[in-house]
Amino acid sequence: MSNTLDDDLRDDVRADSLVLSALLHADGALSGWALICTALTMLALLAMPWPADTLLLLWLAVGVLALAERYVRFRLMLDQQLFQQLGEGRLPSLAHMDGGLQRLGLRRAAPRPWADRVRGTRRLLYGHLGLVLVQTALVMVCGIGTSFLNGY
């Protein structure tokens, strides 16, 4: 596949767009788990006696990770919608999409090759997975530590 595209999107780019859109849509389940981790963190901060200083820092780290996760998930949802519209032909070309994003202040002026767009979205997706995994590990460590401190 070439890195440059004509004004009209090729069939392989449309197919790639739809597959990538489906992958990003599936990431919603991971996002749901991240929300559960955030809810557990907030419940623990509000309901349990304050843990030791180390555990308090871990709980706060989970909260900060939750904010980062929400931002990355927002970006992935935007990408998912844009790829879906490209794949379905509702956006006639990458140039039209880039123009709209630039006019809204969401994208710099320089066009990107198709392969870079796919690679960037995959990198963001893997970053999201990493955030959720670290958040999950911290929730588990905090839960075990809090239980230990409370004598459970």
Rank of each mutant, 00 (worst) to 15 (best):
M1P: 02
S2T: 10
N3R: 12
D6H: 03
R10D: 10
D11R: 15
D11W: 13
D12A: 13
V13G: 00
A15P: 00
L18T: 02
V19G: 00
V19K: 11
L20P: 00
S21P: 01
S21G: 04
S21R: 03
A22E: 08
A22P: 00
L23V: 10
L24E: 01
H25A: 11
D27Y: 14
D27I: 11
D27R: 10
A29H: 13
A29F: 14
A29Y: 13
L30V: 07
A34N: 02
A34C: 04
C37T: 03
A39K: 09
L40D: 06
T41R: 12
M42T: 04
A44R: 15
A44M: 14
L46A: 15
A47C: 12
P49H: 08
A52V: 08
D53Q: 15
L55G: 03
L57P: 01
L58V: 14
W59H: 06
L60F: 13
V64L: 14
L65R: 03
A66M: 05
L67M: 13
A68C: 10
A68E: 07
E69V: 05
R70I: 09
V72R: 07
R75D: 04
R75S: 07
L78M: 12
L82E: 09
Q84Y: 07
Q85N: 09
L86F: 00
E88R: 10
L91M: 09
S93T: 01
S93A: 01
A95N: 01
G100C: 05
Q102D: 03
L106M: 10
A109E: 13
A110Y: 10
D116F: 15
R117S: 01
R117H: 09
G120W: 07
R122H: 15
R123D: 07
R123E: 09
R123A: 14
L124N: 06
L125K: 04
Y126K: 12
G127R: 12
G127A: 09
G130T: 04
V132W: 04
L133P: 00
Q135K: 13
T136V: 07
A137R: 07
V139Q: 03
V139D: 01
M140A: 15
V141K: 02
C142E: 03
G145C: 06
G145L: 07
T146H: 08
T146P: 00
S147C: 13
F148S: 06
F148L: 14
N150Y: 15
G151I: 05
